[in-house]
Design a protein around this nucleic acid. Sequence first.
RNA 1: GGGGGAAUGAGCUAACCUGGUAUGCUGCUAGCUUUGGGAGCUAGUUGUCAGUGUUCAAAUCACUGUUCCCCCA
Length: 487
Amino acid sequence: MNIPKSNFSEWYNTIIKEAQLCDLRYGIKGFVVFMPWAVMTMNKMYGMYERSLEVRGHVPALFPALIPESYFMRESDHVKGFVPEVFWVTEAGGNKTEEKYAMRPTSETAMYTMYALWIHGMTDLPLKIYQRCQVWRHETKATKPFIRSREFHWIEAHDCFATREGAMAQVKEDMAMAEEVIHGQYCVPFIFFKRPQWDKFAGAEDTYAADALMPDGRTLQLPSTHMLGQHFSKAFDIKYTDASGKDEYVWQTCYGPAISRIYAAVIATHGDDKGLILPFDLAPLQIVIVPIIKPETKDSVLANCEEIKNFLVKQNLTVKIDDSERTPGFKFNEWEMKGVPIRLELGMRDIESNSVILVRRDNGQKTKVSTLDPKLLIEKIEESANNMRLELKKKADEWFEKKLATAETMDELSKKLETSGFIQVPFCTDQMEGEKCADLVREKAQANMRGSIFESKEKPDSAKPKGKKCIACQKPAAIYLYAARQY
RNA sequence: GGGGGAAUGAGCUAACCUGGUAUGCUGCUAGCUUUGGGAGCUAGUUGUCAGUGUUCAAAUCACUGUUCCCCCA
């Protein structure tokens, strides 16, 4: 199998079908069936993310999927942002419901209604709760499996603090988790941007979002964390009694890593012309053993495979012997398409020389490993897994690095966008007044302003006479923002 | 939100313009032979997206709907 990744859109659609990641034939626009191979990886991804949340003091809960309209309508910016994409339930048991129920597009309004009942004093804070769930949004943009669908799977964490500083520290912790998990474990590079004011989460004071890059240079937003300030606590009346006995509104943050979308980024970042490449720790199957059988050697080869498998399983590795009736070549292609990190080939030839062939998925490297001492095989597997981890990450990082560029004029920006991903440009402001400049960039260069790098010290020198000017309005530039084409 | 294209067994596809028994490949099932990079032979297996209209007759023509893909905002 050879699918050129250079045509990303076609590559992506083919991989999804061939590796059986999801089935598009369900028949409701934007709704797909997630298939086992994808779900097994996503479960591992969930596990890693949830561990990261829990060691930082989050606890899990599960809130109802339906949100009464009256809860949903309490925070006006939130309403404006989300109402256009809500699926409403208006009928149940054959009758109209008393009230309309929103199928949650996100759970602020469900959770905060309860938070108001739960939080009374300082001892209840901080409150850090996450849930793993699916949400529904009637997207109007073109849907693409995993990348943008009308039903998707995510984690949302909703935290309450006594002070603004506490909430701000949480925003940074959320960023640290993204770095640890998405970059560190999924090996997907990204940049955290502070979104311009005109592009923040509906109801937030500030939005910080991690943007990854797809192979075609377009950006994909991964988790975002939001400083909600007291907007929601005032709307939902979430108060605590402070040390002086006065009632105060809590400060809140929310954080939403969309696992199904991050999975798309994993596929897109690591895959190659032969199919998926999965980081060792994310693979549903880590090692596949392909027996090379002749009718007369079948029993002894399979017995040897079994022995190796049993040994590896004891080391907590996921292993499968592919003893189906397919030919070896077919199996090689099939498991490469699915991204299994390590393949062991075992035939009579190997048994006679007390060895096994180990093949790495990422670079195709074949190594003959002795089976005389099983510890050697384990060592070799661990070494390969480690190297794959490091090299996948390094390769992704180096590619990502090359996709960064700078531009100072609109023409230069348009040109750079052809070959790069994120382009740093001087801009007048990231406050609301800058929106018309962003509109101009969208119109002229078909790019979006993604924001500024969080806590960046770098400021354009706008002092005359040769100072930096806003790429759109030509006024003196006050900030560097990044432009990109987006999914 | 705007524009364009497509839909034929599980997948790909021919027939559509010019209405008349739906083609081939892959898959799947069974059997035999095979197995170090997508095996071979034999037999079997399922289909015109949905609805309406025109017609003696619709995969084919018209209208409506649904879904998928691509491009632009």
